[in-house]
């Protein structure tokens, strides 16, 4: 969880805008570098052509989402232990960023599948569970928004955020334990029915590692940090509104 620790610090001390801006700049540069490597440095896959390059973002987005949702679990557990609101904010940021990243993961996968599997979508266990993963976290946001009492909202969100992680774990392991998925496993051995797998040469491996690092260690924490700032701001405005109401 080292990647996310600056965001926690930010939740308690809101005056780190300079650092956040610096991190954002680093993230932007590194993201463009990763994009450039995927487009120009990595070798073209002989069988799949250029669309295979989407794979670098597909994987990066999934593991970015994984880290974001793991942050939600950490935030939930820590909130229940300490009852400090900053952990709830941390968990909420994880959910929102995770939903955006898993949407990118689904969209890139679907666009890749069109020329390779000859279909945008198939009801394969892995694809289904990845889609449901997004729905679980949208349900999290709905549960949250339906509760008026602040304390109850934070408690329920923590519980649901921890339970929801089972769908992430399921998505991750279903490819290893179920041989009837057609989703290829590029790292390690995948399903025997997998279609569209490919071998990676060294330029591809380097590009993948760089992109994974950018998505997991830079993009996810940066987005979460901005989300945490927004939430702290929203909490301050709400408090001022309440104070104003009580006055008038």
């Amino acid at each position: 969880m080292t990647a996310a620790s600056p965001s926690v610090a930010a939740a308690s001390a809101p005056n780190h805008l300079g650092r956040l801006k610096a991190l954002t700049a680093v993230t932007a540069v590194a993201f463009l570098l990763g994009l450039g490597m995927a487009l120009a440095y990595a070798g073209t896959d002989a069988i799949q052509g250029n669309v295979q390059r989407l794979f670098y973002f597909h994987m990066g987005a999934f593991f970015g989402a994984f880290v974001a949702f793991a942050c939600t679990v950490v935030g939930g557990v820590q909130y229940l232990r300490t009852r400090n609101v900053k952990w709830d904010t941390f968990a909420l940021a994880g959910v929102e960023v995770g939903v955006v990243l898993s949407f990118i993961n689904l969209a890139t996968g679907s666009i890749w599948a069109r020329p390779i599997w000859n279909t945008w979508w198939t009801w394969d266990p892995r694809l289904t569970s990845a889609a449901v993963m997004v729905l679980v976290y949208i349900a999290y946001l709905m549960v949250r928004s339906g509760i008026e009492n602040r304390d109850t909202r934070h408690r329920f969100a923590a519980v649901y955020g921890i339970l929801a992680f089972s769908s992430v774990v399921f998505t991750l392991v279903v490819i290893r334990i179920r041989p009837d998925t057609i989703h290829p496993a590029v790292i390690g051995t995948g399903a025997q029915d997998a279609q569209g797998g490919f071998a990676m040469n060294s330029s591809m491996t380097t590009t993948l590692l760089l992109n994974m690092a950018v998505w997991v260690f830079l993009l996810t924490p940066t987005l979460m940090w901005w989300r945490i700032r927004l939430q702290n701001y929203a909490d301050r405005v709400t408090q001022r509104k309440i104070a104003y109401m009580e006055q008038g």
């Binding site: 069988i47 052509g49 250029n50 669309v51 390059r53 989407l54 969209a107 890139t108 020329p115």
Partner: peptide
């Protein structure tokens, strides 16, 4: 090698 550049561009645009 098939020409799948359009799909790659679409994917990057969506990302």
């Amino acid at each position: 090698t098939p020409n799948t550049t359009d799909f790659m561009l679409l994917g990057i645009a969506v990302t």
